[in-house]
């Protein structure tokens, strides 16, 4: 008679299963490390990466220049660190603004009547209906580019997806028996929104925020790559990738590879943290 207990205890030895929490925390640790390290590296680099050095143009990666140098002799490692710092601030700030816009819109539409809700739905659908990049380019162009314009454009374009999720969530919560009970105990909609609804939205808001950051960063890079975002002289991933295109055929592979890889790593980490949080906050997958 085989004991089930025995088999259960052997299982981890045969197949070490990576726990969602362990995975999420590993990703969060890498994320935090990058968030702290990149600005520090950028600060320590001083003028490196900005000041041209025409004696060391287009040097391939070596011990002095980990990521090589560009056509003006600027150190690509320092330049990447500075670019990512900018991306980070733009991404975090734009996402925070977007989440705020989404939550306010959804709560207002939930607390007021059917008309307000229809209006918010229309705004969500209209914004999602337009291609993201077109809207971004239009806003950025109208504001004349630069970090402020990019952040504002990102904040104004990234809220609808989260707003749609939150709105669906609120609709569902409003049907819950305990909300109906609260109504029949004589509680006002405002009290219910603050006491019952908002606490339920916090996990969604947090996950939405973390997942929005990589999106915003990628869009900032795309905008800049296309020439509508940050100034072409400033260290930005988009600018660096755009510049590298001209040298790619000449075999200067490091110009595009390293900034691109760093951006990818950065975005994937944020994405892993966001997905992990989503699984932890969802009661159906919380214990896996």
């Amino acid at each position: 008679m085989a004991e089930l207990g025995e088999r259960q205890t052997l299982e981890p030895l045969i197949l070490p299963r990576m726990d969602n929490r362990v995975r999420s925390f590993a990703a969060a640790a890498v994320c935090l490390f990058l968030i702290l390290l990149i600005p520090v590296a950028a600060l320590m680099a001083g003028s490196a990466g900005v000041a041209p050095d025409f004696t060391a143009r287009l040097v391939p990666p070596d011990w002095a220049h980990w990521f090589g140098t560009d056509q003006m002799g600027r150190d690509m490692f320092a330049r990447t660190a500075k670019a990512l710092t900018t991306s980070l601030w733009v991404g975090l700030f734009a996402s925070a603004c977007s989440v705020l816009i989404a939550v306010v819109m959804v709560l207002v539409s939930a607390a007021s009547g059917r008309w307000m809700d229809a209006l918010v739905s229309l705004a969500i659908d209209a914004t999602i209906g337009l291609p993201h990049l077109v809207l971004l380019i239009l806003i950025c162009f109208a504001l004349g580019g630069g970090p402020f314009a990019v952040t504002l454009a990102l904040a104004l374009t990234h809220w609808p997806r989260l707003a749609r999720i939150l709105r669906a969530e609120v609709m569902q919560i409003k049907q819950a028996d305990y909300i109906i009970s609260a109504r029949h105990f004589g509680k006002s909609w405002a009290a219910i929104a603050v006491g019952h609804v908002l606490p339920q939205l916090v996990p969604q808001m947090l996950v939405g925020f973390v997942l929005m950051v990589p999106h915003a960063i990628l869009h900032e890079a795309s905008l800049t790559f296309l020439g509508f975002g940050l100034e072409p002289t400033s260290p930005a991933i988009g600018v660096m990738l755009a510049d590298s295109m001209r040298y790619l055929t000449a075999g200067k592979w490091w110009l595009g590879l390293f900034p691109g890889l760093c951006l990818l790593l950065f975005v994937l980490c944020f994405d892993a943290v966001g997905n992990g949080l989503r699984l932890i906050f969802d009661p159906r997958t919380a214990q896996t």
């Binding site: 819950a176 028996d177 305990y178 009970s181 029949h184 006491g195 019952h196």
Partner: peptide, 11 residues
């Protein structure tokens, strides 16, 4: 009103 499943009627 009291329902069969109290789990749904409390937050």
């Amino acid at each position: 009103y009291l329902s069969q499943s109290p789990a749904f009627s409390v937050d």
